[in-house]
Nucleic acid binder design. Structure first.
Lengths: 189, 189
DNA sequence: TGTACATCAGTGAACGCGCGTTCACTGATGTAC
DNA sequence: TGTACATCAGTGAACGCGCGTTCACTGATGTAC
């Protein structure tokens, strides 16, 4: 069948969107190309008209997630209190509930690190976030504090998602959020 | 063939040790039972004389890792400065280099959380570590600080292992270590 | 002391299954005449 | 305006592979007589 001019580009983007979501939600290894294509109403054979391998899609989907999250972070920057807003969003119950739409670091970095050659994109995502936090921490130790804050945010979100007991999950999320916001505000005074 | 009285128990323990190591190093999904048994000089069929399923082994291997780590944490408690020692060990280059012998939280919790039903053992590991940190933080906000510290340690170790650039990896590890040790010492004064 | 038998940890072929990947094919549409 | 042909996104069967799991079997050793 022949389609409109940009049809293929649109299909490609649909694959990237869905993959980016499933990779973050279920993990890369646990996401098959067959179910992925089926979820879009397509058959698996067509996949290779768009990408040369699953690995290529992993890289592109991660990049897509990174750009998406950068946009979302910039929303926080536009607010009155950029850093507290960013922290509150990152450690929100909404973010915890939607790993497929959220930061790829807590969900994908362990698996990507365990693979043969980790992606250079992980470095880039981390650097971007550190720079963003640092730029909004007007204190001497901003470079150091930003590392602690990112580590704590990624760790708290990861643990809060891995736990069975909802009360413990809330405690991990909310306590980290509260302390990090305190630190970010204390330092800007 | 017949073997000595405790031969089977020893084999079982060897399987648990190896699985506990490979699950943490490579991930649960990426570790096949066939390669696991082969690494011990056994054939895969014998596996089911010891465990009723891979899932059962996952649970037992995680428990084994948790106990092992608890023992290692207690070593830190015997030192002059329990908490700084624990933090320095957790965020050491040695720990970063040996995921298979280290804390299961940065390596396994994402994958276990993504599986259908996460293990209750994850809750237990987290509670144990929080209690241990809290008991060595003689300040009012010890309960809150312990959550932040554990989150930051898990996050920093995870990210430091996921990154390509050794310099960035070192920065994540060492900066978090330094700031957390400062916090733990400041609070005990 | 020597022989027959029971034990049972471990063997290895086989099962169905889903994986990533390949490829000959389809068929609706745009273009050429 | 009507017909023949080219295009090419998507189809779906098939590939080899490793997975978790099952099961009839092996064979060295301990026990019974």
């Amino acid at each position: 069948m022949r389609y409109s001019e940009d049809h293929k580009a649109k299909t490609r983007q649909r694959i990237i969107d869905e993959a980016s979501h499933l990779f973050r939600r279920d993990g890369v290894g646990a996401t098959g190309l067959q179910p992925l294509m089926k979820a879009l109403g397509l058959t698996h054979g067509g996949f290779y008209a768009h990408f040369k391998s699953k690995d290529e899609l992993v890289e592109i989907a991660l990049q897509h997630a990174a750009e998406q999250l950068k946009g979302s972070a910039e929303e926080s920057l536009a607010s009155d209190a950029p850093l507290p807003t960013f922290i509150a969003r990152y450690l929100s119950t909404a973010h915890r509930a939607s790993p497929g739409a959220g930061c790829p670091l807590p969900t994908m970095s362990a698996e990507l690190g365990q693979r043969g050659q980790p992606s250079a994109l992980t470095d880039q995502v981390i650097r971007d976030r550190l720079a963003m936090i640092e730029a909004n921490l007007p204190i001497e130790q901003a470079a150091e504090q930003s590392v602690l804050m990112l580590s704590a945010m990624v760790g708290a979100l990861l643990l809060s998602r891995s736990v069975q007991d909802p009360e413990l999950s809330d405690r991990l999320l909310k306590t980290t959020r509260q302390l990090l916001i305190e630190q970010s505000e204390a330092s800007s005074i």
